[in-house]
Write a protein that binds this DNA or RNA. Structure first.
Lengths: 173, 173
DNA sequence: AAAGGCGATGTCAGTTACTGACATCAACCG
DNA sequence: CGGTTGATGTCAGTAACTGACATCGCCTTT
């Protein structure tokens, strides 16, 4: 991340990363599938926490509420102390299409895992997929706001507000 | 697309594509930014139609309804005769992560353009972004169903049904 | 018709991400 | 002490992409 921030993602070669890490280029590729993946090692932690929370939600919880509980758990359990880090990381990601693509597929993976989990709780299609997609959409919009300027609330609060807004929007207001 | 279907995306080299097209590799890259972009030339057509429809929606239309009108226009105006083509194309895309990523960023671009358009119509944030994300989520889920097996309705009908389902889900049912 | 400009294409050389095959080496295990 | 195993290094190769320059056909202008 240091190097990506210093000279930009495209201008950083894997050879340079490996050198600063005291490793070989070949070893780098044994740890990371590609140059982009370096910035996304934490995505499975997010996915596990969100999915686990949804899975353990009380029976009878509405799908969208279960998803909301999962997102809230992630906001308070992972991101609460990481705003500065998230901002630095996000500045790098948004500057390069390749990284934006990778971020999107991580979110899509989260959405897919959420839909699987909801189906495991007896939610049928397409409700499961739509609840999962709606939840990740809320997370995406809220996260962008949270790392942006002029937002003082913590992530959990922004998510809560965005979910309420989605409810209004979906109701046709 | 022929070559990607025959031997797979990764196993197809740009040299082979250029040869079959009777061109040089260098010329290929003058027409397409990269190997993946070949399959996404139509995405700006989709975006233009959806955005244009939203822009021209009657004043006072609720954001989600304007977006729904845009998606409906795309379904009837672009995809109605392209189901077979869409299926062949989608089979290639879903088989390769690189292509899935590219597809996601095209959808994200649509969502972003939609949000801009809604803001142009006076919708404030985060309602504009959420309506746009919700709309593209509906499109994504509906499109997947439409190209999948056992779906006989046309795309417009699937979108309509998915949107209704999203409304239920968002309402907490 | 000649001249000149311009857009599309070809040619060529170079960089760099990524991969497979094999060697090495250190820790651990029986 | 010999052997196994997992992580790393070495090396050579492929293919995506890029920049610089040449060429060529078409169109305009004189």
């Amino acid at each position: 991340m240091e190097l990506y921030a210093e000279r930009g993602f495209e201008q950083t070669t894997v050879a340079e990363i490996a050198k600063r890490a005291g490793l070989t280029e070949r070893t780098f590729f044994r740890h990371y599938a590609d140059k982009r993946e370096v910035l996304f090692g934490g995505s499975h932690v997010l996915e596990d926490l969100v999915v686990g929370t949804v899975r353990d939600a009380p029976e009878g919880t509405a799908p969208i509420d279960a998803v909301a509980a999962g997102l809230d758990a992630a906001a308070t359990g992972i991101f609460s102390d990481l705003r500065d880090f998230a901002r630095r990381r996000q500045a790098i990601i948004t500057a390069h299409q390749d990284l934006r693509e990778r971020e999107l597929i991580k979110l899509a993976s989260l959405s897919s895992a959420l839909a699987d989990t909801l189906r495991g709780r007896g939610v049928s299609e397409p409700a499961a997929s739509l609840a999962a997609e709606a939840g990740t959409a809320v997370f995406k919009v809220a996260f962008e706001r949270w790392v942006g300027d002029g937002e003082t609330r913590d992530l959990a609060a922004v998510i809560k507000g965005s979910l309420a807004e989605l409810r209004s929007v979906a109701a046709g207001e």
